[in-house]
Design a protein around this nucleic acid. Structure first.
Length: 214
DNA sequence: GAAACGATTTACT
DNA sequence: GTAAATCGTTTCA
């Protein structure tokens, strides 16, 4: 298992769309309730701060929920969606741009038994960690992790190389990715965002089974 | 204080 | 494809 935790400076890059694509293939790790889980990031979406109609911080909206988005990049933004699902985001950039990246799907590597228990499942299939609500639940992430420091020891991201063996029967993920293995599309579930709803700011690893929607 | 609204998931027709 | 579940956040009065 790689221990190359990404530093705070990584998250402070000023192009959230670039970072959303760059995160594909990296490893995300959580240590919650003394249980470690890790997985390869397979699907993300970029939300570009105050200028993006799909972003919760559009036009500088500043509330108890969104205030963390204005922090310096490298913290978590977790919120409850539809009263049911905790959605996990990474805040990026500096200068209070309120940029965020939503983690939409991952491919399990370590702690699969823990993920199964948290999801109430007995067998692994793509629904274990595909879809932002399912990913967060499998990783034990909820609003108690609002504002979590991604350079801390609860939830973080590690760069490749990945030394653990991915799921042998379900994973098809190589350790290095070429651009044609990453598909770009419009974001999911934001049709209210008017002229910004079709921006190509969703990325997924098209060689993985662990993707929410094709 | 009241009401509408989701960056979703799952089950059912 | 359609619909229900479910509740904190936001907006409006």
């Amino acid at each position: 298992m790689s221990t190359t935790k990404l530093p705070a400076s990584y998250y402070q890059h000023d192009d959230v769309v670039f970072l959303a694509k760059d995160l594909i293939g990296k490893t995300i790790v959580s240590m919650v309730d003394d249980q470690r889980t890790s997985a390869i990031i397979t699907e993300t979406e970029a939300y570009r701060g105050v200028g993006d109609k799909a972003c919760h911080a559009h036009l500088g909206r500043f509330t108890d929920r969104t205030k963390i988005m204005y922090e310096t990049g490298g913290v978590a933004y977790v919120y409850l969606c539809y009263g049911i699902h905790n959605l996990f985001n990474i805040i990026t950039n500096t200068n209070e741009q309120a940029d965020a990246i939503l983690i939409r799907a991952v491919e399990p590597v370590d702690g699969i038994d823990v993920m199964l228990a948290r999801r109430g499942k007995s067998t692994v299939d793509k629904t274990l960690t595909s879809g932002p609500g399912n990913f967060s639940k499998a990783f034990g992430l909820d609003r108690s992790h609002y504002g979590a420091d991604l350079t801390g020891d609860t939830v973080w991201i590690a760069s490749t190389p990945i030394t653990s063996t991915p799921l042998s029967d379900l994973a098809s993920t190589p350790l290095n990715y070429r651009s044609e293995q990453i598909t770009t599309s419009k974001r999911i579930g934001i049709d209210y965002a008017e002229e910004d709803k079709d921006l190509p700011w969703r990325f997924y690893l098209n060689t993985s089974k662990f993707v929410s929607k094709r």
